[in-house]
Design a protein around this nucleic acid. Structure first.
Length: 825
RNA sequence: GCGGGCGUGGCGAAAUUGGCAGACGCGCUAGAUUUAGGCUCUAGUGGGCACCCCCGUGCAGGUUCAACUCCUGUCGCCCGCACCA
């Protein structure tokens, strides 16, 4: 065996062996339990960053651990390879998006391979390749046929930087999540997926422990908030001297007697009609016009000043028949609820602010327990519980009672009904971009919107296109792409030139891995039945809403189609923390980026993996430390030397039943370590404490390795166990040492070690002795002793006798194996 | 404003069911080896103190024989959502 740890040679050697022997290739095998372990696939930006290294190191430990524990592990990798950066490269540097993307994939694949991750590379997919996007288009068609993909004219988010529309989820603080341009509103005819049909199911499953047992509460909460379910009541009001009616939505029907005005969104279709001919007509027009040019952030941020204008029209209160003025205001949104509200300033802060500003009356209808409220002196809306007042026959009711009674009454009158509202909107999937999967739709002069027949898929992206410097999609100008014949009538037709949001592509890739080369179907039903759902999914929390909700929607839809049996795609989710340097996220602009390539070249992949897993638990942010990396490198060097020194003295064979003290201690420590590492990885994913336990075992081994009485069989057992335990974390060095020790086969194909509970038993154990809760002594106590015997042993000890002299023993608490507390007075 | 999370040495962290706070690592100190440096090895390392001992998990209380852990209040930081009626 080499004296020095030559990681370059070792890592290359084993990466080649794993590749040529296809060590990690798997097939569905119903006779074996499966484990589908997946890490979020990367966008091929060109280079691996530390976040990737962390993500894939975590995933690889889980995959290797499960594999050694007898599972048939599916661990695939692919590329989320459509998207705007490729197109920007084309505009800026004239490199075709396809070439740019595939080159990046090649580079990142080879970088990934230097990490030594246990992927089944035969299942690799890239979403930008026709054999993949053919089925992304197929998915679109299925949704279309079920009425879940539809086109509508809508006011949508337009990013002037990216020259495309965006989904609601891609707008962050009124700006494009990708390029930070301020998002504008545009009325466009766009394709949507009807994800709102699944809102209730997406919500309910979050609380079903059988479906999503291993999801962090944080992510589930974020999804709940995004779906935003609220229960309330919808009812209509007549407009004085007009035929039209206004429908409002409220979650507080109990406060209906407190309504003092109404508000419509400025874009509400009734605004123009009801203000026409009134003296307010001009003011309304001005306000509506101004709102058109007010950006969404300005309008919807909570610190925005509320403003509005009276329409000149009145509604009739359905219960009191009073006339109530109708206003329009910036704080009411057209696309939530009905775009119109009943305003109850006494019990809603927004209405209160507005009423104060415009001098509208405030009528209290809920009285809290203590101080009587008065609309004239109120300083903020009262939103608490209480009894109804000033509400006709409802007076004295509780809020809950009143909600039910009012809703029932409005239902009886035939003007209202109980309703549920969601904040979730349908998913806008059209993108006016080139580098994406074309939407498989044709517009025919005679037949209208015609889906491309399945047997004509894929609709290929044309490659010879020219990119416009203004960022407009070149697809619109690709004549040979746009012009086509109608699949229905054969007449003149043109293709849809929008492509799909890349989140569509990534919503089903985990299914494709089950059967990556199927050219007839996205995947074989039986294969998916075996592999799905993903047992463990690991990735960044930035996907908590977008990707993870879209993917859940796709999975449900495919289940409803009968292609899948699992209701949810991901049973367990691990959201790993960020990798920081100097307390902040690594970024080029800050110049604090540490390149994985450099670290791997300098210390090897095993060191990089070890450090990143040891430095922090996976969910937490990790502070990068160059010194810490060196520490990890030192540890591997130590293991290398230690195994080299010890293996000569070690001997295979049965461990004698009676062992001398030093051998007994090492034997016990070895089994305690197996137990600790196994439970830390299996139950908690706490790789950091698992690694620290292995370091402790290494320390123990170092201390006793040269002892003349050390039993060679115990030494053998320790070395073998240590290598097995360490192998998921640092696979290369462990393979090499395993082979150098002359052990059988490859370490990646061995069984995980099992601890022997009886080896953990000790004749006596050190217990802490407390006097009134303060530790005063430590005593070796036989583990076979009863509570009474322990108590007697402690009280008769000389030291304790001296310490409690002159005091009365009130009580003695014995926690076997841990401590004894003598309470004195 | 609402929701989720966090707060422990000089630093990254550990303490899994209420049971010895600081495992493991980094850094630091001293020593051994070495011509020297590096590597490696040994010992030490929360604060105060010569010692006994005292103090110590953001802060203030509480429950308990015993609290980083449970309860009440409070401060600070991070993340998500945010005029959603």
């Amino acid at each position: 065996m080499d004296r020095t740890y030559d990681f370059v040679k070792i890592e290359k050697k084993w990466q080649k062996i794993w590749e040529t022997e296809k060590t990690f290739k798997v097939e569905a095998d119903t006779s074996r339990p499966k484990y589908y372990n997946l890490e979020m696939f990367p966008y091929p930006s060109g280079n691996l960053h530390m976040g990737h290294v962390r993500n894939y190191a975590i995933g690889d430990v889980i995959a290797r651990f499960k594999s050694m524990n007898g599972f048939n592990v599916l661990h695939p990798m692919g590329w989320d390879s459509f998207g705007l950066p490729a197109e920007n490269a084309a505009i800026k540097h004239g490199i075709p998006p396809k070439k740019w993307t595939l080159d990046n994939i090649d580079n990142m694949r080879s970088q990934l391979k230097t990490m030594g991750i246990s992927y089944d590379w035969d299942r690799e997919v890239a979403t930008c390749k026709p054999d993949y996007y053919k089925f992304t288009q197929w998915m679109f068609l299925q949704l279309f046929h079920k009425g879940l993909a539809y086109k509508k004219e809508a006011s949508v988010n337009w990013c002037p930087g990216c020259q495309t529309v965006l989904a609601n989820e891609q707008v962050v603080d009124g700006a494009c999540e990708r390029c930070d341009s301020i998002v504008e509103k545009k009325k466009l005819n766009q394709w949507f997926f009807r994800i709102t049909d699944y809102a209730q199911r997406l919500l309910d499953n979050l609380d079903n422990p059988a479906l999503m047992p291993g999801w962090p509460e944080k992510v589930k909460t974020m999804q709940r908030n995004w779906i935003g379910r609220s229960e309330g009541c919808e009812f209509s009001l007549e407009i004085a001297d007009r035929a039209e009616k206004i429908t409002v939505y409220t979650t507080r029907p109990d406060t209906v007697y407190g309504v003092t005005y109404m508000v419509l969104a400025p874009e509400h279709p009734l605004v123009e009609a009801i203000s026409q001919g009134t003296e307010q007509e001009e003011a309304v027009k001005d306000f509506v016009y101004r709102m058109q040019f007010t950006s969404d952030i300005a309008r919807t941020s909570s610190d925005a000043e509320k403003e509005g204008v009276f329409t000149g029209a009145y509604a009739i209160h359905p219960l009191t028949q009073e006339k109530i003025p109708i206003w329009i205001a910036n704080y009411v949104l057209l696309d939530y609820g009905t775009g119109a509200i009943m305003a109850v300033p006494a019990h809603d802060q927004r209405d209160f602010d507005f009423a104060q500003k415009y001098g509208l009356p405030i009528q209290v209808v809920i009285q809290g327990e203590n101080t009587p409220l008065d609309g004239n002196t109120l300083t903020e809306a009262y939103t608490g519980d209480g009894k109804l007042v000033h509400s006709a026959n409802l007076d004295g009711c509780s809020v809950e009672e009143a909600k039910k009674k009012v809703t029932a009454h409005l239902e009886e009158l035939g003007i209202g009904k109980r309703t549920v509202n969601f904040r979730l909107r349908d998913w806008l999937i059209s993108r006016q971009r080139y580098w994406g999967a074309p939407i498989p739709i044709v517009y025919c002069e005679k037949c209208g919107i015609v889906p491309v027949p399945e047997d004509q898929l894929p609709v290929l992206l044309p490659e010879s296109v020219s990119f416009k410097p203004n960022g407009e999609s070149p697809l619109k100008y690709a004549e040979e792409f746009v012009h086509c014949s109608c699949p229905n009538c054969g007449g003149n037709a043109s293709r849809e030139t929008d492509t799909m949001d890349t989140f569509v592509c990534s919503s089903w890739y985990y299914m494709r891995f089950c059967d990556a080369h199927n050219d007839q179907l996205p995947f074989d039903k039986e294969k998916a039945k075996y592999w799905m759902p993903v047992d463990q999914y690991t990735g960044g929390v930035e996907h908590a809403i977008l990707h993870l909700m879209y993917a859940r929607f796709f999975n449900m839809f495919l289940k409803d189609m009968g292609l899948l049996e699992n209701e949810e795609p991901f049973s367990r989710l691990l959201t790993q923390g960020m990798v920081l340097k100097d307390g902040t996220k690594m970024s080029k602009s800050l110049g604090n980026v540490v390149s994985p390539e450099e670290i791997i070249n300098r210390y090897g992949a095993d060191t990089a993996r070890l450090f990143i897993l040891f430095a922090a638990p996976p969910e937490r942010d990790l502070e990068w430390s160059d010194k810490g990396v060196e520490g990890s490198y030192r540890f591997l060097n130590r293991i290398w030397r230690l195994v080299g020194e010890c293996i000569e003295k070690a001997n295979a064979g049965t461990i004698p039943s009676s062992l001398n003290e030093v051998s007994q201690e090492l034997h016990r420590k070895t089994h305690a370590t197996i137990k600790k590492v196994t439970t830390d990885i299996q139950d908690r994913f706490n790789f950091n404490t698992a690694i620290s336990a292995m370091m402790e075992l290494t320390n123990t081994l170092t201390a006793c390795k040269d002892h003349k009485d050390l039993c060679p069989e115990v030494l053998y057992e320790t070395i073998q166990s240590l290598l097995l335990l360490l192998s998921p974390v640092t696979p290369h060095i462990c393979e090499e040492l395993w082979q150098a020790c002359g052990f059988n086969g490859k370490i990646s194909e061995q069984h995980w070690p099992v601890w022997d509970e009886s080896a953990l038993e000790q004749a006596e154990i050190e217990m802490a002795v407390q006097i009134s809760g303060k530790v005063r002594d430590h005593m070796m106590i036989g583990t076979h002793l009863s509570v009474e015997e322990i108590q007697a042993a402690v009280l008769s000890s000389e030291k304790i006798q001296t310490l409690i002299e002159g005091k009365a023993v009130v009580k003695v608490v014995v926690v076997p194996g841990k401590l004894v507390n003598v309470v004195v007075k």
